[in-house]
Design a protein around this nucleic acid. Structure first.
Lengths: 242, 242
DNA sequence: AAAATATAGACGTCTATACGTCTATATTTT
DNA sequence: AAAATATAGACGTATAGACGTCTATATTTT
């Protein structure tokens, strides 16, 4: 039985990958089930085995499939929370979950970087950074105070952009930097009086404190942030592998 | 100039990957620098281009290299915190950081799973789980209360094992399950009086609360845990990608 | 000088083939 | 019946070659 791939302008292995993904999602292939072997799929789709393999390997990396040498390839069980594992920005993830999200800019200023930020962003000593403090709302309730530090050298003109209700990562793309990776450190902390006031909670309430460094595709450190998230209204899901 | 690969019994692409890694680590190739093209490397190592490619792709997945279509492959800047990004267990990561770590078992019991745990571990209704509560210490100070739930069906005999100062993941391997992935939800919460007493802190102090589901290589859900970590003594670093 | 175009280098996709290694199962031997 | 062995199926590694696409740079044209 031949399977035919129609779309043009898309690599074959991507088509096969998506065809397999669709079969899994639609339940034609169910969790735990063995999928056809690389050879069989190659014949079905009339491509070479290596092409099928490339598509399968993608899905394995994603966690949708797993395989055992000498035995076969199997559909993984769901609950891998694939969606929450990707690096998404505030507005993206809110939109996906159908939540009303907004943000206001509290402050923009340019000043020399602190030692810590200079080190994290790999700046020369005394180099300037743009600091943007925003307050983020979910359903009109303040949830996060977000302090963002950007190298002034790379984003000097960004201070003239509209930054309300827009994610800064989208703005960065105009400057040629596409965000690729974040390294984040998480802690539970008591809210300072300043943060408590902004988030409309009592001082010393638990805050999910997050420091993160954002890297672009070429490894440039493009942003460093301090985030103060209301503990009772914010949770974060991550996936890690051995 | 030919480069020669000596070790036997190791795939060629692994040798090339490790040779490249060594060159980067030893500083022969420095961050930002362009490495030789796939064609050049194939000639140097006298292998096919696809073999070199497989090695390079591994290093890109790791974040050690990055590439730009039509331009070349480059050494990434460090600070990717590769070490903190892997899923490691409590004792592994403590050892790596040269920290004194220990744990005591407070309780072991077998009982029917709660609805939530049955759902997360994909158990039949009413199926039994083993609950193990441990207290973890760093430098003799209690840092984490750890409630672990395991399917009784898979690990019935585990209750007879020594579980003090041992990580349960190591014990699980004896039962044929190798931990592969964790999906964790993180929140900042106030400490309950029970948890506060165990961690020797005041009630309502910030706790980094963590729920996680642990999956084995074949996708079996092997453990569900609730973790209560002292906010002032525990932080977690994770990396996420788009 | 500016704009359009050509070119070379490098990565991206794809094929067809070969042989190695691992696992589960069937077969044979003890 | 148990143990050893063979076998088939499936993934793992590796090659050589072809052509596509992208980027930066050099060249030509305007």
């Amino acid at each position: 039985m031949d399977k035919i791939l129609i779309t043009e302008g898309v690599p074959l292995y991507v088509k096969i990958r998506e065809a397999l993904r669709a079969e899994i999602m639609h339940g034609n292939l169910h969790p735990g089930q063995k999928i056809p072997s690389e050879d069989e799929l190659a014949q079905q789709y009339r491509v070479s085995r290596m092409t099928v393999r490339q598509g399968i390997l993608d899905l394995i990396k994603e966690g949708l499939l797993h395989r055992k040498h000498g035995v076969g390839t199997f559909v993984s069980y769901p609950h891998f929370d694939r969606d929450h594992t990707r690096l998404t920005n505030f507005f993206e993830s809110a939109r996906e979950q159908g939540i009303d999200a907004s943000s206001t800019v509290l402050k923009i200023e340019v000043s020399p970087a602190s030692d810590k930020i200079a080190k994290e962003l790999r700046l020369s000593p005394g180099e300037n950074v743009i600091c943007i403090r925003t307050l983020r709302f979910v359903n009109q309730t303040p949830v996060t105070v977000h302090d963002s530090y950007l190298p002034h050298r790379l984003f000097a003109e960004i201070v003239y952009e509209n930054l309300e209700n827009v994610h800064i990562w989208d703005v960065m793309e105009k400057y040629g930097y596409r965000v690729k990776r974040a390294i984040q450190k998480l802690e539970a902390r008591p809210a300072s009086s300043e943060i408590a006031k902004l988030l409309d909670i009592k001082p010393n309430s638990p805050i999910l404190y997050k420091e993160r460094k954002i890297l672009a595709e070429d490894g440039t450190a493009v942003e460093f942030t301090y985030c103060y998230n209301r503990g009772d209204m914010y949770s974060l899901t991550v996936s890690m592998e051995r």
